[in-house]
């Protein structure tokens, strides 16, 4: 399956999972909202053009916003993590070995520790901006910190469960692709 087709399917899959399942979960606690959809952006290939990455992130966030009725609320944090992503990947992986030979970030390609750091930092940034945008209009500081940390913890749990369930093959980049 080509990388483009695979990512289009993932785009639809993550939006559907977020809208149909995770947004329907009754709140366990006022701090916790399960978010998984932005994993799509973390799984995009290494080689993607940075400008396209921003555009894709914006469209992806906006299409989730169409379902929740808040245009721009999810688009803003998606664009933020899409902008930070290339810098973080450059820091976390050795240039010659990984980026040259593998297609996309995954625990097998990068190792569990760098991948965990990559996912953790980006989900923390995503939730901080998301809650901050909601918070600008009301709320207090403890609520802000609690909500960001609680949501990040649940997101990390969901992401690692996803990684364990859908074991993606650490595919090598070939000349043909």
């Amino acid at each position: 399956m080509s990388s483009l087709l695979k990512n289009i399917i993932r785009f639809i899959f993550f939006i559907l999972v977020q809208v149909l399942i995770l947004d329907e979960v009754p709140p366990l606690h006022q701090f916790i909202v399960p978010y998984l959809y932005f994993l799509f952006l973390l799984w995009l290939p290494f080689s993607i053009n940075r400008f396209f990455l921003l555009i894709i992130a914006f469209m992806f966030g906006l299409s989730l916003d169409f379902f929740t009725g808040t245009p721009g609320l999810h688009a803003a944090p998606c664009v933020l993590i899409a902008y930070i992503r290339p810098f973080l990947l450059n820091l976390l992986i050795p240039q010659e070995t990984t980026e040259q030979s593998y297609l996309e970030p995954s625990p097998k390609n990068m190792g569990w520790a760098p991948y965990g750091l990559y996912v953790g930092i980006l989900s923390f940034l995503h939730h901080s901006l998301l809650v901050l945008i909601e918070w600008l209009q009301f709320g207090n500081f403890m609520f802000f910190i609690g909500k960001v940390l609680g949501t990040t913890a649940i997101s990390l749990l969901l992401i690692f469960l996803t990684e364990l369930l859908l074991s993606r093959k650490g595919r090598h980049r070939t000349n043909a692709a």
Binding site: A57, F58, P71, G72, A76, Y83, I133
Partner: peptide
């Protein structure tokens, strides 16, 4: 600074959309 500028542009666009919608 094309990437940085387009990043800022998209962020501003998202915030503007949100504030209009609210």
């Amino acid at each position: 600074y094309f990437t940085l500028l387009s990043f800022l542009l998209l962020e501003v666009l998202a915030i503007v959309l949100l504030s209009n919608a609210s």
